[in-house]
């Protein structure tokens, strides 16, 4: 069974991690972003971190400062209107050559929401279904009307320069039945939190999506070193890839063959480790995955 070439993403910092005197966090992000861009990564993720900088501001700045990277913006659907979210995305797709992605934050109580609030998981996923139905509706139609519990639109739809743009590549997460059902219907990429869950649920989820292409991904910490003695021994292998460049490349090639094709790799310190992965790990993975090579 052939799979798409693996895509490697890295997260962007939302909090000050380095305390550079005289420079703020935006400069840390700018340098890490350039490392990912020059290193040939597929993209970066701007997380919705209530203790840090807000994701859309981070994402639009990153898009402006890059040429190739897909920038995945985490979007808390409890706190906004799907028409407006889609409208912002349309401008971003126009300005930045279709490189915006979305990762929805669905299943969290959240400190604030527009009313009516969604208090149970079932309600939150019902709201997510409405959110995506509306966002896609105004994106693709010019006379879109929708009457839902959480969202209502009459005569909506994007026209002229805001029409006919690529919808943001949609990333969804979670392992509940509701989460998997939402992904089967809407997601372009389903990103799991750990390898065991990804391997357990990935094949069934891809089957549930039917003819629609759905990529399975996983978020992992990475500690890659050139020689075995340099590799630390104290890290949980379920949520981290730990080993030598050759070991990790082989492991990744196996995972790609098992159908996991998107990787959100968290490695610290970000700038230096992004360079390391780009120079040492990704080329080895590329050599071992004949499907078209890593990017």
């Amino acid at each position: 069974m052939s799979h798409p070439a693996p895509r490697f993403l890295v997260p962007l910092a939302t909090r000050d991690e380095r305390s550079w005197p005289g420079f703020d966090i935006a400069e840390q992000r700018a340098q890490a972003l350039r490392a990912a861009e020059l290193g040939g990564f597929a993209g970066v993720v701007a997380a919705d971190d209530l203790g840090g900088d807000e994701a859309s501001v981070v994402a639009y700045d990153a898009l402006r400062a890059s040429r190739w990277l897909e920038v995945v913006q985490e979007l808390p659907i409890s706190r906004g209107n799907p028409v407006y979210a889609a409208k912002q995305a349309a401008s971003a797709q126009r300005f930045f050559d279709g490189r915006l992605g979305w990762q929805l934050v669905v299943d969290e109580p959240g400190p604030s929401q527009t009313t009516p609030p969604a208090r149970t998981r079932a309600e939150r996923y019902a709201r997510a279904t409405e959110f995506l139905t509306v966002a896609r509706g105004v994106w693709h139609d010019t006379e879109f009307t929708f009457e839902g519990r959480y969202h209502q639109v009459v005569g909506g739809g994007f026209r002229e320069a805001l029409a006919d743009l690529p919808f943001p590549r949609l990333h969804l997460t979670g392992s509940s039945d509701e989460a998997l059902a939402l992904s089967a219907r809407f997601a372009d990429v389903h990103l799991f939190d750990d390898l065991d869950t990804a391997l357990a649920h990935g094949p069934a989820l891809r089957a549930a999506a039917g003819d629609r292409p759905l990529e399975i991904g996983v978020a992992l910490r990475v500690v890659a070193r050139e020689h075995r003695p340099e590799v630390p021994r104290t890290i949980d292998p379920r949520t981290a890839l730990v080993g030598t460049y050759d070991e990790l490349a082989e492991r990744l090639a196996e995972l790609v063959a098992a159908g996991i094709t998107t990787y959100l790799l968290d490695a610290h310190p970000r700038i230096e480790e992004t360079y390391r992965i780009a120079e040492h790990l990704l080329p080895r993975v590329r050599d071992l995955t004949p499907a078209g090579g890593a990017r």
Binding site: S56, A59, D61, K87, A90
Partner: peptide, 12 residues
């Protein structure tokens, strides 16, 4: 076009 997207991209 949307003002937040433009402002976030242009402040720097």
């Amino acid at each position: 076009d949307d003002p937040w997207v433009a402002a976030s991209a242009l402040v720097r």
